[in-house]
Design a protein around this nucleic acid. Structure first.
Lengths: 185, 185
DNA sequence: CCAACCATGTAAGCTGTTACATGATTGA
DNA sequence: TCAATCATGTAACAGCTTACATGGTTGG
């Protein structure tokens, strides 16, 4: 993590709050009702995480017009989110692709769509790296010594990395197309 | 987990020890040099995990012929491993497929290959369930409201689940073929 | 009025991470 | 002899999970 004090759950919260200010409960519901639920979560993790973000000065509770207080990003919080979003895709993220995908989803908040495109390029490169690494592991000495089922298990990783690679290429096309349409309009 | 006291790392260790007795250091090296490294690890997690398994009576240190002591499975340990391996693939494992794959790799230890085949059938069904869930999420109200990038992020999950499904079908064929060959021989 | 949902928390326990510590053995 | 690798740990810290606790509001 860029900011050592912020976990993946913390960044997910920052990203959601960045989309629109919400209460703790609303944030919890997002995790409960969307595929974002992978970053899990129960009151026992979300509320303390929000408190940490608050203590770190990344979010602020603000009650607008007599309603319940909602969480808003502070300047520092927006900057922390931004720098997390712009981090290059590393090898770790090529293996555990969910975190990278989370970043991709939140990258949409930015006007500058080229950020998303370069993210996809980096993601594709990382996926390709994983494909190559697994393929050469299978072709190498250790790989050839594997039993059928261990080999199949590794091949699953390979198939999964290939799927990610294919997805990234297609996503680049679709995003470019959308950018073109926006230019024309 | 079946046994509440055993984590994924614990089962990975049980599986490896079940393949062949090893020292703590050898076990660590496996994690450092193979794709199993996803279940991570540093001395600070492996040694305490081994100690827990020992305390729980699932493994035993045994020094054969004056060498360094190696970890062996106890009867209880072998039973715990077995029941973990035979657990049906649930929805959670369909999302986070790595744990399921770990079980698949270790299932090879069993003579009875039909266990592996039924595992693959269950895995395929779970993957299909994920595919359907994500597809209907995208087709539903919430899905249609998604921005392009959020939609693409979910589609990545879909592509990944489809890859798993395809892999499982192919794996079933290859495993069946191998079983046929064994019968003939 | 009562159930369901809104809304926010705390506490115990456990596991994993990082970093540090220690000593034996082996090869150049 | 000195560095690398073998080999096994401990300690501090932090985060997540589960379970429990509390009270307001709304609809049938």
């Amino acid at each position: 993590m860029n900011d050592p004090a912020v976990t993946t759950l913390g960044y997910a919260l920052l990203g959601l709050i960045g989309q629109s200010p919400r209460s703790g409960y609303r944030l919890r519901l997002v995790f409960e009702t969307t595929p974002l639920g992978t970053y899990s979560s129960s009151p026992g993790s979300i509320y303390p995480a929000l408190k940490r973000l608050e203590r770190a000065g990344l979010v602020r509770r603000e009650a607008a017009g007599g309603g319940k207080p909602l969480f808003h990003l502070t300047g520092t919080g927006a900057a922390a989110l931004q720098s997390w979003l712009e981090r290059p895709v590393d090898a770790e993220e090529a293996i555990d692709r969910e975190i990278a995908l989370l970043r991709f989803a939140f990258l949409e908040g930015h006007r500058d769509r080229t950020l998303s495109l370069s993210f996809l390029a980096g993601f594709a490169a990382a996926a390709k790296g994983q494909v190559d690494a697994l393929a050469s592991f299978l072709a190498g000495e250790e790989g050839r010594a594997l039993s059928l089922q261990s080999r199949l298990a590794v091949e699953h990783g390979l198939a999964s990395a290939r799927a990610s690679l294919g997805w990234a290429e297609q996503a680049q096309d679709r995003l470019s197309a959308e950018i073109q349409k926006e230019k024309v309009r």
